[in-house]
Design a protein around this nucleic acid. Structure first.
Lengths: 263, 263
DNA sequence: CCGTTTGGTTCCATTATGTGAAACTTAGTC
DNA sequence: GACTAAGTTTCACATAATGGAACCAAACGG
């Protein structure tokens, strides 16, 4: 459950520490981390030193607390631009948002979780990182299920074993088996629903973004509330959403990359 | 000039590789990196494996290209929230933007460069990462100079030695010495100008954000164009901007952090 | 005021880990 | 079907990570 448990030599461990700080969600002192971590004092200390020196962490000298460093913000800017679907999907999402008038999400898979990389809000304009970068569960969100449905067996297996299957609402699928059946239906149908499985009153239709070879690279969803509409009404948009997904996929396929002349 | 040159054991080298990929700005193949990097084939290869396995990079299996991984986006979300000034500065920036009707930047220092963490655009709303996460030179931007002016001597020395002193416009300071004089003036005056030093036609007034002990933690600027206004007019806002900076500083000071009960 | 505890930093002998030249295995050319 | 370029694996070797223990400093407490 925790962030612990991987192993990739020294680098892996260091990144582990980074995650620990991220997970804490607030500046933490050395001793806080020491309590959490499996590493001995000296080792942990060295990692913190290194990461701080590298700008991945910052040490507030007044309070002696560590927090994630700004270098990450810079890296993420690049990551978001160069390897998320967001930049190239933007115009299509704008269009879709305008047509539907509902909230649009663009998500990708990250370590068994759904990572939202962009969002169009009907009402107010996008808030910076506050929406991009958020993570959510895969087994009980529209985009999550849409992606799971098209994962190869072995990958699916791996992801499923990581899910918590926490029951959020009466509609949440609580076990891998129940979910698997649903996934088959989704694969067949080409789109997934969220029937208030994550939050009461929130429903959505989600569509996977697939490469020509059938690899999932992301998903988009149109979300609304039970007060405003019904799943049937939303489903009527499904073909429109699939079209958008297809266009994004096509773009992604062609768009890598403008060519280069070698140095 | 490149990203090379640091050293922090294995972890430092790995992060170096990460930077190389970021710097490329597009998915790169193994051999591209090999050409750039100082590391031998096998070593580089191992790093790429590890980083990929860790989700810091992604390998597009079809093309065999590496790109920054989405895990970074997630980390950055946390970084931006927990250690940039952006979240707590937001309301103050909004206010300032509304009052001035000009573009507002919020920046922090990162490895000798200016890193923009938030932005208010008079005209259209903020574009996600496209503005947050951007970096710029320290020696020829308003926010950069405002921060440099309040850096302790040794840190300033370190930062100056990293600057490229590329001459962007006729007004750009081209040497550390010229700049030092300017910095003294800025420290005295309490605010910095950008006199078209980075881009022709672009001017700004910038103010450092200082802790009670006088440590710089960031800077804000109000930017405009020579067509729309003059530096004198902008300077009239200086006190207003300082007030905003002071409020942000106060907030930052108090806001770390809500207390915690130990586990 | 001086033990004592708590939180943080440094040492250093031990050994695990990372290193990189070279050998190898594919794809892709001509 | 020999030749080349790109990517992957091996392995003897040395460097670099490890962590127990000692150390230091500041806050406590009597």
């Amino acid at each position: 459950m925790g962030a612990q448990g991987n192993q990739d030599g020294t680098v892996g461990k260091a990144l582990d520490v980074l995650d620990m700080v991220a997970l804490a969600g607030r500046p933490v002192r050395f001793s806080d981390l020491l309590a959490t971590s499996a590493y001995p004092k000296a080792t942990l200390y060295r990692f913190l030193q290194t990461l701080t020196h590298q700008g991945m962490l910052t040490l507030d000298p007044d309070r002696g607390t560590y927090a994630l460093g700004v270098r990450l913000v810079r890296l993420a800017h690049a990551a978001w631009q160069q390897s998320s679907l967001a930049p190239l999907a933007r115009p299509y999402l704008d269009e879709l948002a305008a047509e539907t008038g509902e909230t649009i999400h663009l998500a990708q898979m990250d370590m068994g979780q759904v990572l939202y990389v962009d969002k169009r809000n009907a009402a107010r304009p996008v808030e910076m990182f506050s929406s991009a970068g958020k993570v959510g569960p895969a087994y009980c969100t529209g985009v999550g299920k849409a992606m799971l449905a098209h994962l190869p067996d072995d990958a699916l297996q791996a992801v499923l074993s990581r899910q918590s299957f926490h029951v959020f609402t009466p509609h949440t699928y609580a076990s891998p088996d129940a979910l698997r059946a649903e996934l088959a239906a989704i694969r067949q149908r080409g789109h997934a629903f969220d029937r208030e499985e994550h939050e009461p009153g929130i429903i959505c239709v989600a569509v996977p973004i697939l490469t020509r070879q059938g690899r999932v690279i992301g998903a988009i969803s149109v979300t609304s509330t039970t007060q405003r509409t019904t799943l049937d009404v939303l489903e009527a948009q499904a073909d429109r959403i699939k079209e958008t997904a297809a266009r994004i996929a096509a773009e992604a396929e062609s768009w890598r990359f403008p060519e280069q002349d070698k140095a």
